[in-house]
């Protein structure tokens, strides 16, 4: 560590810092205490911690890895880059897939049929069409850039 790492004081920050954090922990503690006899507490905790772990240690690194694999598509001198024309539609399509995964994969069809009287047949096809439109728009934009680029 090059300087600034260790502070002389015992705590390492201002009293205000400690106060804000104690307030946060007190509220969490109270919320947990209200649930202590509820069998749901364990499941809620698992999903709570699971959500953070899956994003930070699985989804985030995975996205970074895929993005790194696309790097050869970036622009070079005298060449229009394809990279962002793949990145943008892929990211939008992936985001829609993650957000609407339950209906796209018909995970909740039985419940939905009982509740709303409807099936979940159209969603996978709709997502595929949206994805195709996104990539087509991006390809069109790429074609325009290629034509305009100086040779």
């Amino acid at each position: 560590m090059s300087g600034g790492g260790r502070r002389p004081r015992l705590y390492g920050a201002s009293a205000w810092h400690l106060l804000a954090l104690l307030g946060c922990f007190a509220l969490t503690g109270y919320a947990v205490s209200r649930l202590r006899d509820d069998p749901a507490l364990l499941r809620i905790t698992l999903w709570f911690v699971g959500a953070a772990v899956v994003w930070d240690l699985v989804a985030g690194p995975l996205i970074a890895l895929v993005d790194r694999l696309l790097l050869p598509l970036r622009s070079r001198p005298r060449r229009v880059g394809l990279l962002n024309h793949v990145r943008v539609p892929a990211l939008l399509s992936g985001l829609l897939l993650v957000v609407w995964a339950p209906v796209i994969f018909q995970r909740s069809e039985q419940t939905f049929r009982l509740k709303a009287g409807l099936d979940q047949d159209p969603y996978l096809e709709r997502w595929l069409v949206i994805t195709a439109v996104l990539f087509a728009m991006s390809a069109a934009a790429y074609a325009v850039r290629l034509r305009r680029a100086p040779h």
Binding site: L27, T28, Y30, A31, V32, R34, L35, D38, A40, R43, I44, W47, F48, W100, P102, V103, R107, S108, T111, F112, K115, A116
Partner: peptide, 20 residues
């Protein structure tokens, strides 16, 4: 989307997590 895979009451989970 009516996917209740977490198997706890949505109200319970969403309410207490909101306070955290």
């Amino acid at each position: 989307q009516y996917d209740y895979a977490w198997k706890f009451s949505f109200y319970t989970g969403h309410f207490y997590a909101a306070w955290v």
